[in-house]
Design a protein around this nucleic acid. Structure first.
Length: 803
RNA sequence: GCGGGAGUGGCGGAACUGGCAGACGCGCUAGACUUAGGAUCUAGUGUCUUUGACGUGGGGGUUCAAGUCCUCUCUCCCGCACCA
């Protein structure tokens, strides 16, 4: 037998697969289709690190297994190549970002190919490719034409380090999601996408799909739907009404004061009548000086001032109540004003308690002198006139009707989700394909002129003014209006890097189409994505954005399904061997190239799947890698014990059936670690038995093949199992043969294990009893005691209780 | 603060509807083969005061039986964070 030399055999098989175009997906209506998708990487200058192959290997296993099961599998790969790191690298090294991108892509492709993934490389896409960009721009124009893209002057999040505007989703703890830089508010004229229009469906349609719960909950929380009412409170003696949003209209009789945000326009409007206006404007200034972070710090005490000279009338009680201004009410949510119900809201209670405002109990069940009572399930209304005696739910219904009849309020749903800030002031992104004409306004660039390409520039540097670097290229900016022909100017902002990734899964269906973003036929055949695996960090970014795009495209009849992804799973991170996140600065980055070179791609793949629970993060361990290499060496040496025979070895048959079952189930449910463990056990059993038939080996190799595709093909050929392994079908198992007829039954005395006896699984209690009580060790423990009870669970346990 | 997840050997991690805790792998110990071993093979490996007892973050409970169920509590991770 030859030595196991992964570097030789891996290259050999990769060439064979490529030559045979084994993984090229074609529409074929005679087979069920399966679309497996992994998030396409951003081709960074650093190349792959060992975190990348984890999800790729997982989905590669799924894809390979599905092929053996007779599916027509689409498993594509591409490059999400627009982005700041490339641009920054280009600026620093004075190389065009397109050249940097090409270089990085080539490196990534080579690395991925060396690991032996079964991607259909003929469908490779690149978001920066003009042929791809064209359709990203075209799709943007569909949003524009349907009124879902609009330009608005508004305060946006500005990353002071990247010098670029950010979407809300890109701000994490007031810092830039990407670079961690400080984010400040900056008023800018921005292109926005009306994602809020889809807020309800983005929540409700989660019902239709099979996403892990974490993802569903996170998306729901992000969208933040809350149902309630907007209610008008008359400003006493004035024309104006003060409108509030509340989710608890049932507590209105307990509203003893109101609070408005510091920025609320009411203050300015009545500044002459507010006797303490000076004090209030001082308070406002102080707040304005504070950062968002300080203002929203929950641990600090609430502050506030009563507005003297203005009062409001509680529409339910008819009583006058004071109006306060405080930092705990935000202008950006609801109406910027609240009706405070200190008895039944923690924040209002804290505030009322601090400033000595009256606290009225309107829901029985707690002690409002000690804390707010917020339970909505048990509570019964009191001190609430016609609501008295009702449950919270009933009261909500009744008060809503009452207020609506009198024109005092209306039911209203509020969302935390904001429209998507879609403009970026950087060079390396898709230009927004619109032209501004003084006469015609914003005019789309005609379809035949797409894509609008990035001009070559000397300088890609972002500006401090918040203008795109493109704004300086006059010959590019100045154009003519597509509509009237007069001089006009191009939009100089570019799209965020999330644009290209919002629809790439559609392009994979038909990547070379120059007439359409993808043909109807291709979309109808391949969509939906059956299984999409990706990072949790994209849950409220890419995953939400792409669902939104897809829904819009569905509405205008361009895609056949309302949701893009049928199933979504997520992988855990691979940490450095010091249990910290891998990063260059920590010096704990492992390059997969080194592992492939020293141990082989199959070892890398096996280890990444064996490392632990797929969904959890796990620290890298070089010893763990070695262990997997040892396992593959053992698999390699199975050649030495193989004998002719096209039946399973009798003594191994049950184990083989069990393993087929275990591996099949585990590979379908992301439990790769236990699947591989089962294969290791079976290999151990093979060695214990001393010899295996070709049939035993054949099944073993097919089961292991999705994990370690090269070594298994090689052994297959070496042993002469006929044809190629990749032409096989997935082995089936006989349920009956996965169950042992004779089992080791544990016998307990008072819940403690005292013996195990060999019995038939189906044995009746009387037979088992005899054997159990006859056991020497058991005898010892029941001697001289009374048997109180005996429990027999077939196939599980025999427990004798003595006293 | 709210929502979600998790605490199991020296380490990564197994354990179906409650039914032999620690599968599988790493590491470690001893032995074999060797000029050698960071190769390979064999045996062992939860802890302890080892005819036995104790063991799944901690306390209480339900049960013939609890890692698994109930209850209180501690710690860590993730998400949201004054959202009315």
């Amino acid at each position: 037998m030859r030595e196991y030399r992964p570097n030789e055999i891996e290259k050999k098989w990769q060439e064979i697969w490529e030559e045979k175009e084994l993984y090229k997906a074609e529409i074929d209506h005679s087979k069920p289709k399966f679309y497996a998708l992994v998030e396409f990487p951003y081709p960074s200058a650093q190349g792959l690190h060992v975190g990348h192959p984890r999800p790729y290997t997982a989905m590669d296993i799924v894809a390979r297994k599905k092929r053996y099961e007779g599916y027509n599998v689409l498993f594509p790969m591409g490059w999400d190549a627009f982005g700041l790191p490339t641009e920054n690298f280009a600026i620093k090294n004075k190389i065009h970002p397109a050249i940097v991108t090409e270089r990085n892509v080539n490196r990534f492709r080579e690395q991925l190919k060396s690991i032996g993934f079964s991607f259909d490389w003929s469908r490779e896409i690149n978001t920066t490719d003009p042929k791809y960009m064209k359709w990203t721009q075209w799709l943007f124009l569909q949003f524009f034409k349907h009124g879902l893209a609009y330009k608005q002057e508004m305060p946006i999040n500005w990353c002071t380090s990247c010098k670029v505007g950010l979407a809300n989703e890109e701000v994490v703890n007031n810092a830039c999601e990407r670079c961690g830089g400080e984010v400040v508010q900056k008023v800018k004229n921005q292109w926005m996408l009306r994602i809020t229009k889809y807020a309800d469906r983005l929540i409700d349609d989660l019902e239709m799909v099979d996403f892990i719960d974490r993802v569903k909950t996170q998306q729901k929380n992000w969208i933040g739907r809350s149902e309630g009412m907007e209610i008008d409170f008359q400003v006493a003696g004035k024309e104006d009404k003060l409108r509030v949003f509340t989710t608890r209209p049932d507590t209105i009789f307990g509203s003893t004061y109101m609070v408005i945000a510091a920025e609320h326009p009411l203050i300015d409007k009545y500044k002459d009548e507010i006797s303490n206006y000076h004090e209030i404007s001082q308070y406002r200034e102080e707040l304005a000086k504070k950062s968002e972070l300080e203002r929203t710090d929950l641990s600090k005490e609430k502050t506030g001032i009563e507005i003297k000279g203005l009062r409001a009338i509680n529409p339910a009680t008819g009583k006058e109540i004071p109006i306060w201004v405080s930092d705990y009410v935000l202008m950006s949510y609801g109406t910027g004003a609240i009706m405070a119900v200190p008895g039944h809201d923690d924040r209002d209670w804290e505030f009322a308690n601090k400033f000595g405002l009256p606290i009225v109990e309107v829901i029985k069940g707690g002690d409002v002198t000690k804390e707010a009572y917020t339970d909505t399930e048990e509570g019964i209304l009191v001190n609430s006139d016609f609501l008295d005696g009702l449950t919270v739910k009933e009261a909500q219904e009744k008060i809503a009707g009452w207020l609506e009849e009198r024109g005092l309020g209306e039911r209203k749903v509020n969302y935390k989700l904001r429209d998507w800030v879609f403009s970026r002031q950087r060079y390396w992104g898709e230009p927004i394909p619109l032209v501004h004409c003084d006469d015609c306004g914003w005019v789309p660039v005609p379809e035949e002129e797409l894509p609008v390409l990035l001009p070559d520039v000397e300088n890609y540097e972002p500006t401090d003014t918040g203008e795109s670097p493109l704004a300086k290229i006059e010959e590019w900016v100045n154009t003519t209006c597509p509509k009237c022909g007069k001089p006009a100017k191009r939009e100089t902002d570019t799209m965020p890097n999330w644009a290209g990734s919002s629809w790439y899964f559609l392009r994979y269906c038909d990547p070379h189409n120059d007439e359409e973003f993808a043909s109807k036929e291709a979309l109808e055949y391949w969509m939906n994505v059956d299984w999409y695996n990706g990072g949790m960090e994209h849950t409220t970014l890419h995953l939400l954005y792409s669902r939104f795009w897809h829904k819009f495209l569905y509405d205008i009849g361009l895609v056949p399904t309302p949701e893009p992804y049928q199933k979504r799973t997520s992988h855990g991170m691979i940490l450095g061997d010091n249990n910290e996140k891998m990063s260059k600065s920590r010096g704990n980055v492992v390059n997969p190239d080194d592992i492939v070179r020293d141990y082989g791609a199959d070892t890398l793949r096996t280890y990444e799947m064996f490392i632990g629970d797929f969904e959890k993060s796990a620290p890298w361990s070089e010893n763990g890698v070695k262990g997997c290499r040892r396992f593959l060496e053992r698999v390699w040496r199975l050649q030495e014990i193989v004998v002719d025979g096209d039946e399973y070895t009798k003594e191994l048959e049950s184990s083989i059936h069990k393993t087929i079952k275990k591996v099949s189930e585990d590979f379908d449910t992301l439990k790769f670690n236990t699947g591989i463990a089962a294969l290791m056990s079976l290999a151990n059993e093979f060695y214990d038995h001393g010899s295996i038939t070709k049939k035993d080996l054949e099944t073993f190799l097919i089961l292991l093949n999705p994990v370690a595709p090269h070594i298994t093909e090689e052994i297959w050929q070496e042993v002469g199992l006929g044809g190629y392994l990749h032409e096989s079908t997935w082995p089936g198992y006989d349920e009956a043969k996965t169950k042992d007829q004779v089992i080791e039954l544990p016998v307990q005395v008072n819940g403690k294990l005292r013996a195990t006896i060999q019995v038939d699984v189906e044995a009746e209690q009387d037979d088992v009893r005899e054997m159990a009580l006859g056991d020497e060790n058991v005898k010892k423990y029941i001697e001289g005691k009374n048997i109180v009870k005996e429990i027999y669970v077939k196939g599980k346990i025999y427990n004798i209780v003595v006293k």
